[in-house]
């Protein structure tokens, strides 16, 4: 009751070490950053004394959160890139029914999602740069 060992790395690609959740980590960082920025802005503009004069505080906060989120996504992207291991066999199709292709496919998908999430976070950070106002 086990998969035919196609490659020597079979152990490394075993199903137990894999999870579908992992491909969503990049977008999850985007989501957390997005919700945090939105909530911070809503609370700041509603509750901070004289928010308009202290707006730079909020902008700085959102900016810092953006850098943290970008670093996290960058790291996740790097892990995913290594899992994809493109430079090893130049495989980007992963169309075969073996553990290595499944493993690299999940890496590839996670990498692409990290790229999209990275761009998403950059976009979300832009309002702090260009539209810093509670009005």
């Amino acid at each position: 009751m086990q998969d035919k060992p196609h490659r020597s790395q079979e152990q490394e690609f075993s199903e137990e070490r894999s999870s579908l959740w992992r491909i969503t980590f990049g977008p999850l960082v985007w989501a957390v950053h997005f919700v945090a920025s939105y909530a911070a802005t809503a609370a700041f503009c509603a509750k901070w004394p004289e928010p308009e004069t202290h707006i730079d505080l909020l902008r700085l906060g959102v900016g810092l959160a953006t850098l943290v989120a970008l670093a996290a996504i960058g790291w996740l992207g790097w892990l995913a890139w290594r899992q994809w291991d493109f430079l090893d066999d130049h495989d980007y199709a992963h169309a075969d029914g073996n553990s290595e292709d499944r493993h690299e496919f999940l890496g590839h998908a996670a990498f692409l999602l990290a790229v999209v999430s990275f761009i998403g976070v950059v976009y979300s950070g832009l309002p702090a740069l260009f539209a810093g106002s509670c009005r």
């Binding site: 939105y38 909020l58 959102v62 976009y123 309002p127 106002s133 509670c134």
Partner: peptide, 13 residues
């Protein structure tokens, strides 16, 4: 607040 609007505009793009 225009910053809030900005976040959603950004995500929409």
């Amino acid at each position: 607040p225009s910053m809030s609007i900005g976040f959603f505009s950004a995500a929409s793009e």
